[in-house]
């Protein structure tokens, strides 16, 4: 009976359960960071890795696509980590950001978005070709997935790609987002990611919103508004170029090379 009471209570107060759970994960992660790594590995990086592991395990267990949020008791994680609160908190980080810094990297930041979309697409398309795909629609859809997990299915749908190709492009985009989350704090020092200007370039090159948001959070939260400022235009540009310029280029190349 007590079990049912607790179960119903947690289901009725999902978001509050999420606050407690994330609080506990954060506390444990910062404790690990202090005691095991002497602060070298940032607590929030460990917490994000924990989140990803929990999501993977629950995905395998439930077969759903919302990670831990697919388990009824933890459904509140889906609200707390959903797009609405994510964007709300990201926008709040802009409070206190410097307009001067934003302007100083404005042009290079904008260029980096274009370069980021094209480079990701080309690398994804090359992988598709290397694995034996010859249909321009398939190559474009997989390449677009390497841009972001939104650009992939949007492009694929516009081109009439099959549903397993769409799933493949989403998977490629998810791999990208997860690697950006985990790789950014590890590589930040080596790529000079320690100032607003390079953060804007980084946001433009990576572009995956969730990846950039989590990657910078685990590196230096002060850089978040700068990275997000460019990343926020990336998916839109990808959806614009994917089914048009990029697809036509792939088609022309495929025809020329036989």
């Amino acid at each position: 009976m007590i079990g049912d009471l607790i179960l119903n209570m947690t289901k009725a107060n999902g978001l509050i359960v999420a606050f407690v759970l994330i609080g506990a994960i954060t506390w444990f992660s910062y404790w690990l960071s202090r005691t095991l790594t002497k602060g070298r590995l940032h607590g929030s990086a460990i917490a994000i890795a924990f989140g990803l592991i929990l999501a993977g395990v629950s995905g395998a267990y439930t077969g759903g696509n919302a990670g831990l949020a697919d388990i009824a008791v933890f459904a509140g994680i889906g609200v707390m980590g959903g797009n609405m609160f994510r964007d709300f908190a990201i926008i709040a980080t802009a409070y206190g950001a410097s307009l001067e810094d934003l302007k100083s990297a404005g042009f290079v930041g904008a260029i980096s978005i274009l370069i980021g979309v094209v480079v990701s697409f080309v690398l994804g398309a090359i992988v598709a070709v290397a694995f034996g795909y010859t249909d321009p629609v398939a190559i474009t859809t997989i390449g677009a997935g390497a841009v972001t997990y939104i650009v992939g299915p949007v492009t694929g749908t516009a081109l009439g790609a099959s549903s397993d190709l769409l799933a493949l492009s989403v998977a490629a985009g998810l791999v990208k987002a997860i690697l950006v989350m985990l790789g950014t704090p590890a590589l930040a020092r080596y790529i000079g990611l320690d100032n607003p200007q390079s953060a804007m370039v980084y946001g433009g090159l990576m572009g995956t919103n969730s990846g950039v948001a989590a990657g910078l959070a685990a590196t230096d939260p002060k850089l978040v508004p700068y990275g997000v400022m460019t990343a926020t235009f990336y998916t839109g540009l990808g959806c614009l170029l994917g089914p048009s310029v990029l697809f036509l280029t792939v088609k022309a190349l495929a025809a020329a090379l036989g």
Partner: peptide, 16 residues
């Protein structure tokens, strides 16, 4: 922001 991002990681489709 950071707690929300941790929740976002926990609801992402790692399995897929």
């Amino acid at each position: 922001y950071i707690p929300i991002v941790i929740a976002m990681a926990a609801k992402s489709d790692v399995y897929a």
